[in-house]
Simulated scan of single mutants.
Amino acid sequence: MKQLAQTFLAIFVIAFALMYTAHYMNASEGLTGGNTLTVYNWGDYIDPELITKFEEETGIKVIYQTFDSNEAMMTKIVQGGTTFDVAVPSEYAVDKMRKENLLLPLDHSKLPGISNINPRFMNLAFDPGNQYSVPYFWGTVGIVYNPELTGNLTFKSWNDLWDPSLKNKIMFVDGAREILGMSLNSMNYSVNDTNEEHLQAALAKLQKLTPNVKAIVGDEIKMLLANEEAAVGIVWSGDASEIIDANDKLTYVLPEEGTNLWSDNMVIPKTAKNIEGAHKFINFMLDPANAAQNAEYVGYSTPNEKAMKLLPEEISSDERFYPDLNSMKLEVYENLGKKMLAHYNELFLEFKMHKK
C-alpha cells in the first residue's frame, strides 16, 4: 500500500512538472511569439505613431531595437542572443544575409501591399524576385552645402570639393563605401570598383582633399551642418532633408558624375519566432497611408508609388530627393565580399589616419 502511494505521488509530481513546463513554454512563446514582435531597425527610422497604430490594430506588442551599421546588425543576428522578427538591412547586406542562409523566404500571399512598390525597386540583383526582402526606403549620397558659406560654387561635380576655397569647410559621414565611392565617382569609376589601381588612385585623391576636410563624424553631422559648423557635407539624402528642415539656407545636390542609389529593406531573419506577425508588420508598412506618413516623418524617399500620391506636392516633386532615376548615373552598392569590403575599410582608415 505504501509502495502504491509512493507510485501515485511520483506520477503526480511528474504530471505537475509537465503542466508547469507546458505553461512556462506557452508564456515564453507569448513573449517572443504571437503576442510580441521584435523589430530591429536603424535609429530614428520610423514614425513612433505607426508602431502604436500597429499595436492597436493587431494586438501585437512591438519591441523596437536599433542598430547603427549593417555589420553590427548582422553580427547580432548571427550570434542569436536576441531573436528579431523583422530587420531592415541595406541592399548589399540583404545579398550577404541570403547567401549565408540568415533569412526566411517571404510569403507574398501575405503581403498584398507589395504591389504598391515602384517596379524600379523590385527584382534587383541583390534579391531576385524579392524572395527575401521588401523595399522600405531609398535614397542617394550627395552634397549638402550652404551657399552663403561657399561663394560661387554650385557643386555640379564631385571635383568641386577639391576647390582651395573650401579649406577646413567640409564634413564627411563616417562611411568607407560612401567616401571612397565619392572619390571613385569623381574619376568616373564605379562605386563598386575592385581594380586595385583605381582604389589606390581614389585613396591618393582623397588624401589631397585632406586640407578641406574639417571632420569625419557620425549622426552628429546633421546638427553640426544645420548649426553652420561647416559649409559642406557629404551625406545621405535623408540626412540632407533633416538638415535643410533645420536650416533652410542649405541645399542638396547630386553631382553629374553619378552617385550611389541605396535602399533599405524589410526582411525576416531565420531565427524569427513570430513569422505571422512579421508578415503583418511588413504589410502594414506597405499600406500607402502608413508609408506616406512614415516618409514625411523620417525624411527619406519612399519606394511606394501609391504613397507618393498622398505626399504633399512640395515633397513628392522635390527633385533633390526624388530625382529622375532614368536620367542620372545611379549605382546600387554590390556585395563585394568579405575580403574586398575589409580592404575598403582599410583604405578608408588609412585616409582617416592621414587626415589626423
Rank of each mutant, 00 (worst) to 15 (best):
T52G: 10
M171C: 03
K205P: 00
E197Q: 13
V94F: 13
F281K: 07
T66D: 06
L37G: 00
H108R: 08
Y344G: 00
T58E: 02
K208F: 02
G181F: 02
S301P: 11
L341G: 07
M182S: 06
F155A: 02
D287K: 03
G258V: 03
I268T: 03
S133Y: 00
G33P: 06
S133A: 11
L37C: 01
G175W: 11
E334K: 14
L106K: 00
G181R: 01
E257C: 06
M171L: 13
P105I: 07
E220A: 11
H354D: 12
N116H: 15
V39R: 01
Y24H: 13
A246I: 02
L225D: 09
I114P: 00
A201G: 06
I244M: 14
N123I: 10
I46C: 05
V217R: 12
K99L: 08
A201M: 07
S157F: 00
F172M: 09
E305H: 08
F351K: 00
S316H: 04
T150P: 03
P128S: 05
V39Y: 00
G142W: 08
L199R: 06
I143W: 06
P164Q: 09
I60F: 03
R98L: 14
E196W: 04
Y136V: 01
K167D: 00
A278S: 12
N260Y: 09
L311H: 08
M25I: 12
S327N: 10
A15R: 04
I282A: 06
G33K: 02
Y45T: 03
Y189A: 09
G43N: 14
F126K: 13
M308T: 10
S133N: 00
S115G: 02
I117D: 06
E178D: 07
S165A: 11
G33C: 02
N294H: 11
M223Y: 14
Y189G: 04
P323Y: 10
G277H: 11
M73C: 04
T21G: 12
L111V: 07
L336Y: 05
S157Y: 08
L111S: 06
V62G: 05
G238S: 12
N168M: 00
N116V: 06
N188K: 13
K339A: 12
P323M: 08
W42T: 11
V253Y: 05
I315D: 05
Q3D: 14
L184W: 01
D287V: 03
N294Y: 01
P255R: 03
Q6W: 14
E178W: 11
I282N: 05
T210V: 14
A226L: 10
H198L: 05
N195V: 08
Y45M: 11
A27R: 15
M19T: 15
K156N: 13
A289R: 08
L349I: 11
T52S: 15
W236C: 08
I14S: 10
M25C: 08
M122D: 10
R177V: 12
S237D: 14
N283G: 08
T194F: 02
A289G: 07
M74N: 11
